[in-house]
């Protein structure tokens, strides 16, 4: 049998429903990660020299100056949330895949009574 060309893995061109769903989730998580880091710091930086920025630096949230809390406390907490969401989805995805493969095997088992 001649060797057929394999399906090349490419993050930007996922093949198959399972990989497409996984990559969609990865993109969503990475977008949440990037937006939180770049967005929060861009926001703090843009406001740094303004009156609103001075107010935010003076304003305390959970006893900390707002930028300190936002960067030092919220971002690590947000990363944990992103990881939890990713894991919950991946667990569900793995269960669905397992169910699907079990049904497939059952349907194709000639010795099984239906």
């Amino acid at each position: 049998m001649p060797k057929s060309e394999p399906v090349d893995v490419n993050f930007f061109k996922p093949r198959g429903g399972s990989m497409k769903r996984e990559i969609r989730l990865i993109v969503l998580v990475l977008a949440g990660w990037l937006l939180a880091v770049a967005g929060s710091q861009g926001f703090v930086y843009l406001l740094a020299s303004t009156r609103l920025g001075a107010f935010l630096s003076a304003y305390t949230f959970f006893n900390l100056p707002m930028p300190f809390w936002l960067t030092g406390h919220f971002l690590p907490f947000w990363f944990i949330i992103l990881c939890v969401l990713f894991n919950v989805w991946m667990d569900r995805h793995a269960r669905q895949n397992l169910d699907g493969s079990l049904r497939f095997r059952a349907r194709n088992d000639p010795g099984r009574e239906t």
Partner: peptide, 24 residues
Amino acid sequence: GYFAMAFVVGWTGGYVLLLVLMAT
């Protein structure tokens, strides 16, 4: 001071990359 927050965010945020792109 505040600049050191980059270390906190960098050393925790890297785990998101590790989880979604590599760990599995």
